[in-house]
Design a protein around this nucleic acid. Structure first.
Length: 486
RNA sequence: GGCCCCAUCGUCUAGAGGCCUAGGACGCCAGCCUUUCAAGCUGGUAGCACGGGUUCGAAUCCCGUUGGGGCCA
């Protein structure tokens, strides 16, 4: 199967999950069948253009691992890949259509169009241009738009790849604008002209375009071109059930990156929104998805974006990371927390405890919560209530006694024996001797060592922290208990 | 309002006439494990929107209703 697909973002802002999923399906189809994935910037609406947006779009694709074969930055055989740089092609197409009587200039003023719309509204008639200029051969010297002369009767059949034939009555479609007053094309013209010239085989786009597909099909017909395969994929819905949009829950890709989602997790999640491999598989690498991807696996009903599911999938991906890889991905968040950079060697101290942390972290920034105390020099920030825990609640003297016992035990362990198994054996033994539950003994140690009630497993933590720091922090805790809060 | 699309657990989905006593995943609930928090393990909860057909047989095909969504305004 020959496949050439394009992703046509408008540089009006950052891409969000809704439109990046379209890019993903484009990319998957291209990679699966050895075709080309093309990025084409659709910047014909000058008023909505946002400075720098194009780069943000490319960055988002790169972050997700979606590489492109042709595009505005890398060029390609059908360059340029920005619509604003392809204006002559649209003008030429429009001119040809006018010459052949398939399109016409329309000099109707915006005011007239406005009045027309209002009167139609009042008369409860279907809105649309009344074709007043059709057949009038308006002068090219006056300000004008170019409209397509749509068929007046009959039906236009959209052969949608997923839905089959969808038929629209031509009588209900008006003569839409191809070229605007400023000489820029509308989406309707530009996408058709470009898709044809760029030899696009499959137009994959959101279902919201299905109702304008007949216009595109008529444009292809008027130009005498062969139409591509139409693949209208279901819309992604937000929590309010409506189309996911910037106003309603659509988060930019960059934001997901900042919140600590892994690109591979987001990719897996997005692929499963509307597509499935089989009855049981949910966790798939990008390579596995690519290998299994097929348009026939796409569903027809719109899916809701369930952030909770994404979170869990992300947690799963984090757990499955190689520990050293995990540390490197978490590092920036830790550095932000402690306000300084961490060298590789220093980071690798955490290798021992990394797997335990991976089990706990759902979003990358949480990495800092489980590791910042390893890199803190001064006194830890916690209060005595935390230190005493449930077992010693309101009993500072008992807590002090416990901490001192732990200290004594820990001091008895040599630097050379300062390992997780030895620490665990010694402290469990101590709990047994004292006849108390392990939890009662361990809680003050944990808080003293980490400054937190919720922390990674204790013994690995102490080993990683090292003997001197552990002893120092327990000493500090003992002092605090001896000197009650003011 | 007109046109169009869609319809399986709360969510994502499997299912293309008998393999369905409707499967999986996330969530949720319970239990186990347990040094906090997690993870893990075991079990459980929950769905074919409704009504008509077609058929020996329908989640699966057809029609209608209802509901949701999209586009145009």
């Amino acid at each position: 199967m020959n496949v050439r697909v394009r992703y046509g973002p408008s540089p009006t802002g950052e891409p969000h999950v809704g439109n990046i999923r379209t890019a993903l399906f484009d990319w998957l189809l291209a990679r699966r069948f050895g075709g080309q994935f093309i990025v084409r910037i659709e910047d014909t609406d000058q008023s909505r253009a946002v400075e720098g947006a194009e780069q943000l779009i490319l960055d988002a694709l790169t972050w997700l691992g979606l590489d492109w074969d042709e595009g505005p930055d890398v060029g390609g055989p059908y360059a340029p890949y920005r619509q604003s740089e392809r204006l002559p092609m649209y003008v030429e197409a429009a001119r040809r259509l006018i010459d052949e009587g398939k399109a016409y200039r329309c000099v109707c003023s915006p005011e007239r169009l406005d009045a027309l719309r209002k009167s139609q509204q009042k008369a409860k008639q279907p809105p649309g241009y009344d074709r007043r200029c059709r057949g009038l051969n308006c002068s090219p010297d006056e300000p004008h738009v170019v409209r397509l002369a749509m068929p007046l009767e009959g039906d236009t059949i959209v052969n949608d790849y997923l839905r089959g034939d969808v038929s629209f009555q031509n009588a209900l479609l008006d003569d839409h604008v191809l070229l605007k007053r400023d000489g820029f094309p509308t989406y309707h013209l530009a996408s058709v002209v470009d898709d044809h010239h760029m030899q696009i085989t499959h137009v994959i786009r959101g279902e919201e375009w299905l109702s304008s597909a007949p216009r595109h099909i008529q444009t292809y017909a008027a130009l005498g071109w062969q139409e591509p395969a139409w693949v209208h994929i279901p819309i992604i819905r937000g929590p309010d059930k409506g189309k996911l949009s910037k106003r309603h829950g659509a988060t930019s890709i960059r934001q997901y990156a900042e919140e600590g989602y892994l690109p591979e997790a987001l990719l897996n999640f997005l692929a499963l929104l509307g597509w499935s491999k089989d009855e049981t598989t949910t966790i798939m690498s990008c390579a596995e998805i690519t290998e299994a991807f097929d348009l026939d696996g796409l569903g027809l009903s719109s899916a809701m974006f369930d952030i909770e599911r994404l979170r869990e999938m992300n947690a799963r991906y984090i757990r499955d990371l190689e520990p050293s890889d995990f540390l490197r991905r978490g590092r920036p968040h830790l550095e932000t927390r402690i306000g300084r950079t961490i060298a590789d060697d220093d980071l690798d101290r955490l290798l021992l405890i990394a797997p335990a942390i991976q089990e706990r972290v759902k979003l990358l920034p949480e990495f800092a919560d489980y590791t910042d105390f390893f890199f803190t020099d001064g006194p830890l920030d916690y209060d005595n209530a935390e230190l005493m825990g449930r077992a010693y609640r309101n009993k500072p003297w008992a807590a002090l006694e416990s901490v001192e016992a732990s200290l004594k035990t820990l001091r008895s362990i040599d630097e050379a024996d300062w390992t997780t198994p030895a620490l665990e054996a010694a402290l469990r033994d101590l709990a047994g001797q004292r006849g108390e539950k392990p939890g009662a003994l361990f809680t003050p140690i944990r808080v003293a060592a980490t400054g937190k009630r919720i922390a990674p497993p204790l013994f690995e933590t102490l080993e990683t922290l090292g003997r001197p720091v552990t002893v120092e922090r327990l000493n500090a805790a003992a002092e605090r208990l001896a000197r009650p809060d003011d």
